Simulated scan of single mutants.
Amino acid sequence: MNLSTERLTLRPIQKEDITDYFEFYSDVENCLYLLNEPWTKENMLENFSPKLENKSFLKRTSTLLSVVYKEKVIGEISIISTNMKETIEIGYIFNSNFSQQGFATEAMIAVFDYLFLTTETHRVYADVDSRNINSAKLCERLGMRKEAHHIEDYWNKGEWTDSLIFGILKREWEQR
């Protein structure tokens, strides 16, 4: 799958992307709310290799896309199939050096357009750590509604964390 916007290209991950991926996956602040610890030079290849094969650590079918701006990978978007009919979970991480420029919103709009306008997707949702204010704001900019706030529902990195569930339906996306 390849998608294009005014400034971005979204495409499958390539082995040459590893250095750019290391930039955002080794950033301690960037990984604070992710399930994985920040990458190190020692585990970089081990963590990156499964991405080349589109293997999700969640053991579900996923499509991973590199978000490219001017020949540099500035983010990753996960499109994860769920067990529920025509329902997709999305995930994302972006290089913090490129924040506050609208890249995440632009990339996610392209993904939502693809999912809702060219596939049979009925619903897209995101499961966000409640402390990740920037991620919640992105979901809101995309027109997603907060559907749930689960209290201490996920054990991660030695502590119980709250989750926010954001969702949007195909008909809502088409009406926006």
Rank of each mutant, 00 (worst) to 15 (best):
G91T: 04
F57L: 11
K51S: 06
L52A: 13
W39P: 05
E53M: 08
G102S: 10
L58F: 11
E53G: 01
F48E: 03
S96A: 12
G75I: 14
G102C: 02
E71K: 13
L65C: 02
E23T: 04
K51L: 10
M44C: 09
K55Q: 13
F98Q: 01
W39V: 03
Y69I: 15
L35G: 08
L58W: 13
G102W: 12
W39G: 03
N36G: 04
F57D: 12
G75C: 11
L65M: 12
T63R: 06
F57P: 11
N83C: 01
F48C: 00
K51Q: 09
E53V: 09
I77Y: 10
T40Q: 05
L34E: 09
L64Q: 15
S99P: 00
M84N: 11
E46R: 05
K41H: 01
I79D: 06
K70A: 15
K51N: 02
E89R: 13
N95H: 03
K59S: 04
L45W: 05
S81E: 15
V67M: 15
N30G: 04
F94C: 12
N95A: 09
N97C: 04
S96Y: 02
L35E: 06
E46M: 04
G91Y: 07
I88S: 04
T105L: 12
T63W: 10
G91S: 02
F24R: 06
Y33W: 07
N30E: 00
T40V: 06
E46T: 12
R60H: 08
F57C: 05
N43I: 14
I93F: 02
S66F: 10
K85G: 00
E106K: 10
E53S: 14
N83M: 05
A104P: 05
S62D: 09
K51W: 03
S49N: 14
T61Q: 09
E71C: 05
F48L: 04
E23R: 14
T63D: 09
E86S: 01
P38H: 12
N95C: 07
S81R: 14
F103M: 11
Y25A: 01
E37G: 03
Y92D: 01
Y92N: 06
F57Q: 11
C31Y: 03
Q101T: 01
M44N: 02
T63M: 13
P50R: 13
S26N: 07
I88V: 08
L52W: 13
S78Y: 11
E23D: 08
S66W: 11
E53K: 15
S81F: 08
R60N: 04
D27E: 07
T105Q: 12
Q101V: 01
K59Y: 08
E76G: 02
Y92L: 07
I93D: 02
I93Q: 08
E106L: 07
Y25L: 03
S81V: 03
E76D: 15
W39N: 08
F94P: 05
K59W: 09
S81H: 11
Y69F: 14
V28T: 05
S81K: 14
N36I: 07
N36Q: 09
L32S: 13
Y33A: 03
S96R: 13
Y92G: 00
P50Q: 15
S66D: 12
E42W: 01
A104E: 03
S66N: 12
Y69A: 12
S81C: 03
